[in-house]
Amino acid sequence: MKEISLHILDIAQNSISANSRNIEIHIIEVDKDNLLEVTIMDDGKGIAPELLHKISDPFITTRITRRVGLGISMYKAGIELCNGSFCITSEVGKGTCVIAKYPLLHIDRPPLGNISETILTLVVCNPDINFKYYHKVNKNYFLFDTKEIKKK
């Protein structure tokens, strides 16, 4: 995928399928550490340890229509292609957390892309899920929390 924000949209779809009530997307950019960190966490049904172990295998999927699930595999491959690191943790009944760390300046790092389109699509298509989007660039941050909006 051409932009990291498209991967974020894709991984968040997994969170939605896992019956999450709250999904958080944190993007942190730190120039002096050459770091772009993208975290997607949810409170969905979680992934069992046996499955979590092999989750980045493209032939491992919970889909029943076919035996291939490319979302996590492609995300991880793209991250590793530019020397980044990918980490997924999960607890059944509690939720899942996917953390990607990219070297900000690496020539093969895809652009973050249109993150606002991704957030907009997620929020509008899933009115019953709370989304929290936190984006920090060095010392400045932006926070968008649908809970704040729904309070009104």
Partner: peptide, 27 residues
Amino acid sequence: RKDRKGNRIVVGMATCGIAAGARPVLL
């Protein structure tokens, strides 16, 4: 969303759809 009587436009938004460019189509 609750009303079944209206028109529905459904956009495929799986990994294949997103990679192919479904996000700007939905918007």
